[in-house]
């Protein structure tokens, strides 16, 4: 049956807004990345690939930011996924108590990044923070650290905060995934005398692959986009030890007024994310089975 032409009108308002405020700026990031525009003056020159060359050869801070971002991502992806998976298995049954626990663990997700940043700045505070105070009180003073002031551990302290922030959300996705596994597979495994580990290895894990794909892909993207949290907690400091790509783009653009260079880094950023997403989907797809 033919649809009336008026259906095209349904796209118009959305398309206009989307083009002006999303497509246009995203595409012009490519354009500006080949210029030396400072963001203020009207004039700028085309400088070819100079910005890109500079990023990879002449800018150690950018490389540090990439490295920090990878550290942050690995920590978050590994620990958040494991954590969420283990607790999803613990809380899989829909009992009243389990539903309550899931709701509690999910809670941080609804807070703003700025709020979470403040909470953890207090927890990590070297002098009055809860962590150091507790270590001091129980005679574990040697474990006290300047959690977000020490350049060698700050990025991991931020990554831990990110896990605290979002693990509950991933837990829920895993619970949904576990619920979609047919009960009789477990019964068969039981009859066959499979151990708990074998059941997990042969039944749960392979059938959980779609949820795992979603969790890992989402967590990865999330850890690259953790701008709000990092910006509010450390602004990339101390001494660039928590600078990630997103905060670095902000710094180059709005502190150093080098819009051309910031755009080039943005484009690189986009490609890094596209590449990682692509590789993950490929790796996790090949893992899929169905019974």
């Amino acid at each position: 049956m033919k649809v009336s032409k008026s259906i095209y009108l349904f796209f118009i308002p959305g398309l206009i807004l989307y083009s002006i405020f999303f497509l246009y700026p995203t595409l012009s990031a490519f354009f500006y990345s080949f210029t030396n525009w400072d963001g203020i003056s009207d004039a700028f020159n085309f400088i070819g690939f100079d910005n890109y060359v500079r990023a990879f050869t002449g800018d150690t801070i950018f490389l540090t930011a990439v490295e920090n971002n990878l550290k942050f991502m690995l920590f978050v992806v590994i620990f958040q996924t494991l954590f969420a998976l283990v607790f999803a298995i613990f809380l899989v049954k829909n009992t009243k108590l389990n539903v309550f626990w899931r709701a509690l663990f999910f809670f941080p997700t609804i807070l703003s990044s700025v709020s979470v940043a403040f909470i953890w700045m207090f927890m990590y505070d070297a002098n009055i923070g809860l962590i150091n105070t507790v270590f001091g009180a129980v005679g574990l003073g040697f474990l006290q650290q300047n959690w977000i002031g020490d350049t060698s551990i700050a990025i991991y302290s931020l990554a831990f905060t990110q896990v605290w922030f979002h693990a509950g959300q991933m837990l829920i996705i895993f619970v949904a995934g576990l619920h979609s596994i047919p009960e009789d597979l477990y019964e068969v495994a039981k009859i066959e005398g499979a151990t708990k580990w074998q059941t997990f290895r042969k039944v749960t894990w392979p059938l959980l692959a779609p949820s795992a794909t979603i969790v890992i892909a989402y967590t990865t993207i999330q850890s690259f986009k953790a701008f709000d949290l990092v910006f509010a907690m450390t602004r990339g400091g101390p001494n660039y030890s928590t600078e990630i790509i997103a905060t670095y783009i902000y710094e180059i653009a709005f502190r150093n007024y080098n819009f051309g260079y910031a755009s080039a880094i943005s484009v690189i950023f986009m490609f890094i994310i596209a590449l990682i997403t692509f590789l993950q989907f490929k790796a996790l797809r090949s893992n899929r089975v169905s019974y």
Binding site: Y18, F21, T26, Y250
Partner: peptide, 24 residues
């Protein structure tokens, strides 16, 4: 095509367009 066009934005982190967006 329209579905792909509109959902393409999910792949692009907001930080990518922040510089031109600010200018706009």
């Amino acid at each position: 095509i329209l579905f792909v066009l509109f959902t393409l934005g999910m792949m692009v982190p907001a930080q990518v367009s922040m510089v031109p967006l600010y200018d706009l």
